Simulated assay, not measured.
Amino acid sequence: MENIKNIYCVGRNYRLHAAELGNAVPTSPFLFAKPSYALVEANGEEIVLPGNRGEVHFELELVVRIGKAYEKGMTVDELVDQFALGIDFTLRDVQSELKKKGLPWLLAKGFPNSAVLTKFQPFNGVDETKKTDFSMLKNGEQVQRGNIKDMIFDLQTIIDFSAEHFGLGEGDILFTGTPEGVGPIASGDQVALLWGDSVLGEAKIKLG
Rank of each mutant, 00 (worst) to 15 (best):
V191G: 05
T157D: 05
W105N: 05
G102E: 06
V94K: 07
L103W: 11
P104S: 02
G54D: 15
E61D: 08
Y37I: 04
E46I: 15
V116N: 03
H57A: 06
G51W: 02
G11F: 02
F175W: 05
G11H: 01
K99T: 12
D81T: 07
E2C: 01
L117T: 13
H165T: 14
L107M: 15
E141C: 05
F58L: 08
L98P: 04
G201V: 04
F30Y: 07
K34D: 07
K100V: 03
E55M: 01
F120C: 10
L107H: 06
F89A: 14
Y70A: 07
E20C: 11
E20I: 13
T75S: 15
A108C: 14
E128G: 06
N6F: 01
F161R: 13
E41N: 09
K34I: 02
L117M: 11
L98Y: 00
M74G: 10
G11P: 07
N3P: 05
T176Y: 03
M1A: 11
Y14G: 08
S135W: 01
D189Q: 13
G169W: 00
A192R: 12
L39V: 15
L60T: 15
V64D: 04
Q144L: 05
L21P: 09
N13R: 06
T118K: 07
K149C: 05
D154L: 04
L168H: 01
